[in-house]
């Protein structure tokens, strides 16, 4: 069980340095998913690991986590909804009229802004996976603490 006040100040400080770097790396993996190995799923898990590290080191203050829960649920639901909207936009706007049709211009191969909606889809999936993983972790802590009260 995680202690409510967290670990010692050494662990806390080191995690404060490391967690933003991990988060940035997750965003990089998601956004550059169409150029280098990686993608939305891998990047989302890396982003979630930054949050989980921060929660583990800073301790599970129950009130703080409870106030974060609805925000995680909202971002998870909104991201999967916007992925669906992306699919329907492809159905409406692309010339071929298929589900998930690529309606944006493909651009030049190898540049950051290329591949139509593929980077947008990677980013949306990254947010969704990150919110889901963090929400499962937060839910395990919250309900365990509520049980013991």
């Amino acid at each position: 069980m995680i202690s409510p006040h967290g670990m010692t100040i050494i662990v806390k400080k080191i995690c404060q340095f490391i967690a933003p770097t991990i988060f940035l790396f997750g965003i990089y993996i998601s956004v550059y998913g169409h150029l280098s190995p990686g993608g939305g799923f891998a990047g989302g898990v890396i982003m979630a690991s930054a949050f989980i590290l921060q929660i583990l080191s800073d301790g599970s203050l129950l009130e703080k986590l409870k106030s974060e829960r609805w925000r995680l649920e909202l971002s998870e639901s909104l991201s999967i909804f916007s992925f669906l909207i992306l699919a329907v936009l492809g159905l409406l706007l692309a010339g071929t009229a298929v589900f998930f049709g690529n309606f944006l211009p493909p651009g030049k191969l190898g540049q950051l802004i290329s591949g139509g909606f593929i980077p947008i889809g990677n980013l949306i999936i990254g947010i969704e996976v990150c919110a889901s993983m963090t929400l499962i972790f937060v839910a395990l802590i919250i309900f365990k603490d509520e049980e013991s009260e």
Partner: peptide, 18 residues
């Protein structure tokens, strides 16, 4: 055709986006 340099992502989000 998908415009993605990474072949795996091109398949996952273009041909097999469903």
């Amino acid at each position: 055709e998908s415009g993605s340099a990474n072949l795996v992502t091109g398949i996952v989000l273009h041909f097999r986006a469903y």
